[in-house]
């Protein structure tokens, strides 16, 4: 097997099991909600909330733990592996879980005959969860390194997420803040600024990941 695939396999199996149970539990919860709400307009709202808000939040929180929660962190740091590679290898399982839960949820919704066509075509539907997930994964990683504490990073990501939920009106009307508003695609899906918002979120995620790599190079802060 290719070394990169083996690395991914080990990265998946070396993580704590609760980091997989956590997203699985939320997936199960929202699937139960879909079953209960099937046939009502609330089923669509629940699906929207799961894809656009829950998946990104979980990915952000898990990303804060991606590197610093590693029990063999000091061993990892003593290898010649570049920081960017270590970070990406640790984030890959989280992205994979996000991808599988998003597609699994949509597939199950289709099986339950819950109509998600209001979200848009296949690509547009994937962008609803992908863009905020990219932003929060980057932010979660960065904040964990800034605070040199995974729990602090996770709490900070949760704080950003809650602030955006509460301050919806302000984010939607502010000329700059709306570009980094995580839930733009579900509140104003027809808005011409939506592509700008989605690009900004992905850009924010990439920027945060670059900054996180830079911080990860300061290895002694984390051991």
């Amino acid at each position: 097997m290719n070394a990169s695939l083996v690395t991914l396999r080990y990265a998946v199996f070396s993580r704590r099991a609760d980091q997989y149970w956590f997203p699985a539990a939320f997936l199960a919860l929202f699937l139960i909600m879909l079953v209960i709400l099937r046939g009502s307009v609330n089923a669509f709202t629940a699906a929207q909330a799961y894809l656009a808000a829950i998946i990104p939040m979980l990915a952000g929180i898990l990303s804060a733990y991606a590197v610093l929660d590693d029990p063999a962190l000091e061993l990892m740091f003593a290898t010649p592996r570049p920081s960017w590679r270590l970070l990406l290898e640790r984030l890959a399982p989280i992205f994979l879980v996000s991808l599988l839960t998003a597609l699994g949820f949509q597939g199950t919704a289709a099986g339950l005959q819950v109509d998600l066509s209001g979200l848009g075509n296949f690509i547009v539907t994937q962008l609803i969860w992908f863009c905020p997930t990219a932003a929060l994964m980057g932010l979660g990683s960065l904040l964990a390194f800034v605070l040199a504490a995974p729990t602090g990073g996770a709490l900070a990501v949760g704080g950003v997420w809650i602030a955006q939920v509460i301050l919806r009106g302000w984010f939607l009307t502010h000329p700059l803040a709306r570009h980094v508003y995580l839930f733009y695609s579900i509140h104003v899906p027809e808005d011409p600024f939506l592509p700008v918002n989605q690009l900004s979120l992905v850009g924010l995620g990439v920027f945060c990941l670059i900054a996180a790599c830079w911080l990860l190079d300061r290895q002694e802060r984390y051991i």
């Binding site: 070396s14 029990p71 063999a72 000091e74």
Partner: peptide, 11 residues
């Protein structure tokens, strides 16, 4: 390198 606090992957 074998550090003082050796963390391993239990699984």
């Amino acid at each position: 390198y074998l550090p003082q606090e050796l963390g391993l992957y239990p699984e």
